[in-house]
Nucleic acid binder design. Structure first.
Lengths: 346, 346
DNA sequence: CTGTTAGCGCTTTCAT
DNA sequence: ATGAAAGCGCTAACAG
């Protein structure tokens, strides 16, 4: 920048003015400065600029996700990035794979880098650090999951109502033995979905049978294994409610592998690509990650812009998408595993 | 930091030493400093630190993708982020949706933020800016697509060989009328895949029929429409080769919608989740985005660490995954479009 | 082992 | 309308 000033025969401040588009520079001078910039290949240095500037915005935000590879997360990221870009802000995304330690590390790294704000999908466990950073003045919005304490903006999905809706859908079809496969117990979303399942059973006057419940299940493989385990119960389920997208996929794979995909009803929480092309197509309780991300981003930027209103709590509704797998009738016979066993359906 | 020094009764430099874990500080003093840091809630300021430090690493890299929402991109991002994290480096991801203008903007933004390096999946079109930044000293690695000029490290997929393999697979099954559905003509990957298709036909002594080729097709909906168009040709294809994951999905949806998924053979380029659960399961030429990302990231960090060797050109092989859709025999009857119109072929 | 001084690249403040 | 000087938070270089 010094070189630019020298070459243009202007002062540092003038160059600064031109670079930042501030008014009060003679067109001729401005032209000379621009030429010098062009000629020298000068690049504005944002970090240095932020340093001196009041408030010191870095024009970047942090996004802390479970796993960028999960379709739900990546759609969320997509829209957050888009909203940020419209403001000239870049998004730094970190996957922490449900690891609280990594979450803490990433949060610390965000602080150190002085991002302007953070959107976080809290892992399970302790969130005191989150609270600490927030109280230190960092704008933070929790998305998809409750941070476990008040005082912070949150944008959540109506998990309990959605899960209840999904389970009710199966019960309405006449299913009495409905299995539940859920992810990480202790995670707010997982717990709420489980609560929704319980509430549906309770509403139908059916007791919860522990043999039909698998919790803290992880990933596609885990979902398949859990489904297998549930179907081995003495009095096995005729329907499954899977509380997360990967678990649903795992269950679908398993049912298909044993050739019972048209026999065991299935409703999944969270939609996924191609769910409508499977056979049977998978009935799901759909969330809207784009909506979630957009609201979270807007909330965050409102805070960054100085909004000091009390913490908001925004809840996005879910939608039941009927496709076929959730509308299968309960089988009357006791279910048998394995292939090729003929059975009566009635 | 000044406050910390004052409270600990030490100098700024000593605090700096403690913060950076430099040797040569008396344990007692160090303890006092740590206490003061804790008490005052002091946070190290990385941007300021970078500014003064030699070379001024920002400990961040830029990742320029087509669309973070595409599974291929998000898996790539995942692994890049992981490699970066192991070095304490954060990843700034930007989706530019094949828009060259956005690509330029994002690149400029990366420069302005002084990222330590950039991994870019070049959009089609002009890449002079890429070259310019690279010559200005920014470490850059092109991934998945050729940047259109030499001099820069690239990590590519063997698109042409992979596509040839996929098309050959269909030809070997006896198909003579093989349709091609590809994305953006002008994009290196798309062009290479098309070249692979042509080379396969040539090898079989079959001329390329323009009526069976759809290029510059975009997205799931586009893939479906293109498949529809091809099947309406006077002498329609008995097999389709779709050159990108979304196009494959679109074609699958369409074939299924018209009930001919067991009749028209299909091989897709790029694997996708659940491809093995569809009916028929979809035969694909699989790429390995994780491998691609890992190699690109390692290459980038080698450059960042000062590697000045000539540009590398790394090619990752593809793998044909046989699942069913690509092994369907050519139908002898003339194909019928729509529903119910019978026609004779020969 | 510890502290002082200078200065990274930029923008503020205040003069001119 | 333009510029000189001071300083953002930190660390390199050199003292003590």
């Amino acid at each position: 920048m010094r070189d630019v000033a020298a070459r243009a025969g202007a002062s540092l401040k003038t160059v600064s003015r031109v670079v930042n588009g501030e008014p009060g520079v003679t067109p001729g001078l401005e032209q000379r400065v621009r030429l010098a910039i062009e000629h020298l290949g000068y690049r504005h240095h944002l970090p240095a600029s932020s340093l001196r500037r009041g408030g010191g915005r870095t024009e970047s935000i942090g996004l802390l996700l479970e796993d960028v590879g999960n379709p739900f997360s990546s759609r969320l990221q997509r829209v957050v990035e888009q909203v940020a870009r419209e403001r000239g802000v870049m998004t730094v995304a970190v996957s922490c794979d449900e690891d609280p330690q990594r979450e803490r590390d990433a949060l610390a790294a965000f602080m150190t880098r002085r991002v302007d704000g953070i959107i976080v999908m809290p892992a399970k466990g302790d969130h005191s650090h989150l609270r600490a950073e927030h109280e230190a003045g960092m704008p933070i919005v929790a998305v998809d999951r409750s941070p476990g304490f008040a005082g912070i903006d949150t944008v959540l999905v109506d998990n309990q109502a959605g899960a209840r809706r999904g389970a009710d859908h199966l019960l309405a079809r006449g299913h009495v033995r409905v299995g539940f496969v859920g992810n990480h117990a202790g995670l707010s979303t997982a717990d709420q979905r489980y609560a929704g399942y319980r509430s549906a059973l309770k509403g139908a006057g059916i007791p919860v049978d522990p043999a039909l419940v698998a919790r803290s299940v992880t990933g596609i493989a885990g979902g398949g294994e859990a489904a297998a385990r549930l179907l081995e119960a003495p009095d096995p389920p005729t329907a499954l409610f899977t509380a997360q997208n990967l678990l649903t996929i795992g269950a679908v794979e398993f049912l298909r592998a044993i050739g019972r995909q048209h026999e065991i009803a299935l409703v999944g929480f969270d939609d996924f690509l191609l769910a409508d092309l499977l056979d049977p197509a998978v009935t799901v309780v759909a969330q809207d990650p784009s909506e979630l991300g957009a609201r979270a981003a807007r909330r965050l930027f409102a805070r960054i812009d100085g909004d000091a209103s009390p913490p908001h709590r925004d809840v996005v509704r879910t939608r039941l998408i009927i496709r076929g797998s959730g509308e299968l009738e309960p089988t009357r016979t006791n279910s048998r595993k394995g292939l090729g066993t003929a059975r009566v359906r009635e």
